[in-house]
Amino acid sequence: MPLKQQPKKGFSVEQIQTAIEAIVLPNSNRTIASEKALTKLTQQDGNIHVTLRFAYPVAHLQDAFIQAIAQATDTPASNIHLTLENKIVTHKVQQGVNTIKGVKNIIAIASGKGGVGKSTTTTNLAIALSKMGARVGVLDADIYGPSQPTMLGVSHLQPEQKDGKFIPVTNAAGIQTMSIGFLVNTDQAVVWRGPMVSQALQQLLFQSQWDDVDYLFIDLPPGTGDVQLTLSQKIPVTASVIVTTPQDIALLDARKAVDMFAKVNIPILGIIENMATHICSQCGHAEAIFGSDGGKMLSENLNVPLLAQLPLSLPIRQAMDQGQGVDLQQTETAIANLYQQATWQIILKISDMGKDFSNAFPKIVIE
């Protein structure tokens, strides 16, 4: 990197580079130097122009980086001109399963038990990740009870078809969504046996034209049955996240979900403890009505990270029912920060995983 500009305020450009590279990324032990993120640095007329490139989305850190660079270089923040870039790659999946065109990384959101807020968590993680600057998709794999169209505010839409494939519906946050809820009457029960459900899941995933999705969340139904088995055998999953409540009954089933992913060699990024506390909308009092730290203790026992402890909150429920998750994260900053921190840890862990090189080698055909 050419660094032949004039020094500023006693700092040489080399010193400015050293100061910038020493900056620590929020909520991590990573630095700009360790991420090899500094790709361009110039100085002109008292202004510092910096370009940082990461292997994950960092748009939410724009202001934090500017302030950190200003402090590290003794330069007014108004004189820092920062460009953030990302180069997200496809990471390894299960052996023998091919990746999907248009989708780089698939994250399964699972729970052993229903009613723990898994779909709510999926929606909010997707919104948080989209705000970070990633191209995000959501596949609603709950064939019997699809809820993502409602939660993402697109239940009134229907996917178009092109070249025999569905074009996923896109919401206000740019999140691409596919669900059986777009294709069937949601007032009627889906009475299908397991093989039909598994086939429907594969069709929703493989027969959709995903448009350059960096991270696709799959909102799984509860349990460890046919859909989960199809996921592990047919679908290229990068990693998984387990959602539970602190309640002992939920924790019993969460352990089964963890065990299932371990048996099929799908990495577990961590556990999200949902409904950790109830926040009173009148007085703000917090009460652990489902128990305390159950998810935290489970993560310690299983030696997997605890990604977040999320509240049972009236604004979250209202936003999900009304398809206003984007508005929720704009107005409820405390809640938005919790989802953002969980999402940040998820993408950092994925970035550390091995890359997928399957498409880099030619296919060998023996005739």
Rank of each mutant, 00 (worst) to 15 (best):
320 M>P: 03
91 H>G: 00
9 K>R: 06
363 K>P: 03
155 S>A: 15
48 I>P: 01
109 I>Q: 10
282 Q>C: 15
132 M>I: 01
367 E>R: 11
352 D>I: 02
40 K>A: 15
33 A>I: 06
46 G>Q: 00
152 L>V: 13
344 W>P: 04
223 G>T: 10
306 L>E: 10
181 G>T: 06
301 N>C: 06
162 K>N: 11
18 T>V: 01
18 T>R: 05
280 C>N: 07
329 Q>F: 09
353 M>L: 15
137 G>E: 04
95 Q>E: 11
80 I>G: 03
125 L>I: 11
23 I>W: 00
65 F>Y: 02
112 G>S: 12
334 A>S: 15
227 V>A: 13
72 A>L: 00
288 A>Y: 00
326 V>Q: 15
63 D>V: 13
23 I>G: 00
70 A>L: 03
159 P>F: 00
304 V>E: 03
150 T>L: 02
263 K>P: 01
70 A>R: 01
62 Q>D: 11
254 A>H: 01
92 K>T: 12
178 M>E: 04
366 I>W: 06
151 M>H: 04
348 L>V: 09
267 P>Y: 03
242 I>V: 14
3 L>A: 06
194 G>T: 07
261 F>Q: 07
2 P>H: 07
122 T>L: 10
242 I>Q: 07
305 P>W: 03
92 K>N: 07
70 A>H: 01
71 Q>V: 11
54 F>P: 02
328 L>R: 08
163 D>T: 07
304 V>L: 10
237 V>C: 07
234 K>T: 13
107 I>A: 14
184 V>S: 07
274 N>M: 11
173 A>G: 06
321 D>P: 05
88 I>D: 02
137 G>L: 11
111 S>I: 07
249 I>T: 10
113 K>N: 07
167 I>W: 02
189 A>D: 04
32 I>R: 09
200 A>S: 14
225 G>A: 15
78 S>F: 02
